[in-house]
Design a protein around this nucleic acid. Sequence first.
DNA 1: CGGGACTTTGAAACCCTTCAATGCCAGTGG
DNA 2: CCACTGGCATTGAAGGGTTTCAAAGTCCCG
Lengths: 224, 224
Amino acid sequence: MSSAIAHRSEVPTHSDQAFELLDCLAVRFKCHRGQEICRPGRPADYWYRVLAGAAGKCALQVDGRRRIVDLLLPGDFFGLTSEKENHHLVEAVVEDTVVAAFPRRRAELMADANPEIARAVRELAFAAIARVESQILILGQMSALEKVGSFLLTMAERLSSPARDEIMLPMSRCEMADYLAISAETVSRSLTGLKHRGAISLGGARRIKILNRKTFEEVAEHME
Amino acid sequence: MSSAIAHRSEVPTHSDQAFELLDCLAVRFKCHRGQEICRPGRPADYWYRVLAGAAGKCALQVDGRRRIVDLLLPGDFFGLTSEKENHHLVEAVVEDTVVAAFPRRRAELMADANPEIARAVRELAFAAIARVESQILILGQMSALEKVGSFLLTMAERLSSPARDEIMLPMSRCEMADYLAISAETVSRSLTGLKHRGAISLGGARRIKILNRKTFEEVAEHME
DNA sequence: CGGGACTTTGAAACCCTTCAATGCCAGTGG
DNA sequence: CCACTGGCATTGAAGGGTTTCAAAGTCCCG
């Protein structure tokens, strides 16, 4: 489930030589919270990689709702599409998110010339598939408790900080709601529900500690 | 949203020379309905492509439920992973589904040697990302009517038969339920709901005709 | 200290799930 | 030819979870 790329809260060290070559093309920039990184309808001229912070690939619906299709953490690539235009809006979710942009044409030429780079890009695309597929499993859960529970476990893994089981969420309740396809109120209720069951403890809205993984599985099974 | 690869009910003609090379590696086989194509836990030694019929990439949950993570139609690739082992069960959904299997090692070597093939595989991976992301949007819909409605529109596009707007569903209600993360009964109710609104007509359980796309949009907006 | 954004909590309405029964269709055997 | 069977689809009713609207509470920052 987890990709070959390490997810850390800071820039992953590109141990691969292939990446060092790609990185020569990269333009880095820092984003404010909510700042748009790429916009639907524009030509898809870049591949991107999150280096620090977090970003969300969003789809805007006709009714004004926002759906976060993919949550992008350090190490994750996005903008990988076979279309000529972007279909999604990508926004920074936390302040000072750092993104590297790779000019697509030149990156593709580099991939043509260097099989290692082609392989690396392929792997990154595969990682994106795995990410989105695992999100589908979360969205397919029956109850909101299960959704929030599996989201937290996934985040604990992806953010894998030195202190595992202690998560600093990069997003607000509202953004979790857009990501999990439930209302922000239900997200909140589910978290307090998990707290009351002794599965987690909350230290401020975004600091979450996983106390008892056993409880999560019980919740997952039938929310007893 | 739709990939560069044409989706037809029969084998797509591989106009690209790159594909012809890859096809030399392929082992083709025909599957019965429900037959497993690859199994979780086994080494991921192949890439696959559906040539005819349909297949479903399934995740089995602890409670015995089945979730269809990706619906694979002719032209679609699957088995694209960076892991050493498969995580999903892939099953044929219709009788006589034809699949081509590409030995992964050799296909990768071929991609290393031939940038066109590498590019083609990359595009196919990108297409898989687009497929799953659009499925996330469907799962994120509010009501079952919206889910079923947008599913039908998507299928009409992907199956694009000569007579557009006339779909022959490759799957049962139960499988649609597993794909849309709602119960089979609700799928049925939604279909009759759409019928009563004049959006579709049913000729047998699997033959569906889209009568009025306007109605779909109304449903999507707020299911009036 | 106040403002503002975010989070939590409450109550009513609504939609979906579940369980159950009925209906439909094709294939089989008498 | 017909009855029968099994799988699938449809429909009904009760119960429960989520959404929505609303209000109160919390936290951070100027």
